[in-house]
Amino acid sequence: MSRLLAVVDDDEAVREALVWLLESNGLAVQPEALLQDDAAQFACLILDMRLSGMSGLMLFERLLQRPYCPPAIFLTGHADVPLAVSALKMGAFDFVEKPFDDLLLLTRVQQAISQDQQNRQQQSQQQRILGALNQLTDREQEVMQLVLAGKLNKQIADSLDISIKTVEVHRARVMEKMGVKSAVELAGLLAQYRPHAAKSD
């Protein structure tokens, strides 16, 4: 699990202070442009709201288009608080006003790292569910939908014009491929599935 942090700030003094603070607390830091590199390698992004050539908000918008964007913490001056609020609405983890309190920033960073771990676990689960769904045949998909609708085997057999024995075979294969043992468990698993969260690199 990645624990590498990206620090993006045009102010060299601020950047060096951030790197020292984070590294002195046992965190690995890479001062980054984040324009060519894969953001997914980082557990947390620390972005200054004002960057030369591209605002922190514009950079964040670009990163959100990638398969995975880690939690982002914005550093902002008082005048940029409205922009920081916009960043939160876009999905940023938090923002911290300059001059920042070291302990507050460290706390937010640790929380962001924990959030990153949860996000990655959720994404992994989404991929697992998608992979299982892709293993189902068209007929197994049909049987699964009717099982989820609460239909009994006889009702499924009548609906699909197949024998009850065939329904039982398809139903067993659905449960095996999806890694569940009951219709209730199957419904619970699929309730976690959100196709937009399952995209991969």
Rank of each mutant, 00 (worst) to 15 (best):
S2M: 12
R3H: 14
L4E: 15
L5F: 12
D10K: 01
D11I: 08
E12Y: 00
E12C: 02
R15V: 01
E16G: 04
A17G: 15
A17M: 12
A17C: 05
L22K: 02
S24Y: 08
N25V: 08
G26V: 11
L27G: 06
A28I: 07
Q30C: 05
Q30S: 12
E32M: 07
L34G: 14
L35G: 12
D38W: 07
Q41C: 14
Q41H: 07
A43H: 06
A43I: 13
L45F: 12
L45A: 06
L47P: 00
R50K: 12
G53F: 08
S55D: 13
S55Y: 02
G56Q: 03
L57A: 09
L57T: 13
L59F: 13
E61A: 05
R62M: 13
R66D: 12
P67R: 11
P67E: 13
I73T: 10
I73C: 05
L75N: 10
T76Y: 13
A79T: 03
A79Q: 02
D80T: 03
V81R: 04
A84P: 10
V85N: 12
L88H: 06
A92R: 03
D94F: 11
F95T: 02
F95Y: 15
F95M: 05
E97L: 09
P99I: 04
F100G: 00
F100V: 01
D102M: 08
L106W: 15
T107S: 10
R108S: 05
Q111A: 09
A112F: 14
I113F: 00
D116Q: 05
Q117H: 15
Q118A: 09
Q122E: 14
Q125D: 00
Q125E: 06
L130S: 09
L130R: 11
G131R: 11
G131F: 08
A132C: 10
L133G: 11
L136C: 07
L136G: 04
L136E: 03
D138C: 01
E140I: 01
Q141P: 00
M144H: 04
M144V: 10
L146D: 04
V147K: 04
V147A: 04
V147M: 13
L148E: 08
K154L: 12
K154D: 14
Q155N: 13
I156Q: 02
A157P: 01
I162M: 02
S163E: 06
S163Q: 07
E168L: 01
V169E: 02
A172S: 10
M175N: 06
V180K: 13
S182V: 10
A183V: 10
A183N: 12
L190A: 08
A191P: 10
A191V: 09
R194E: 14
K199Y: 11
S200G: 11
D201W: 12
D201Y: 09
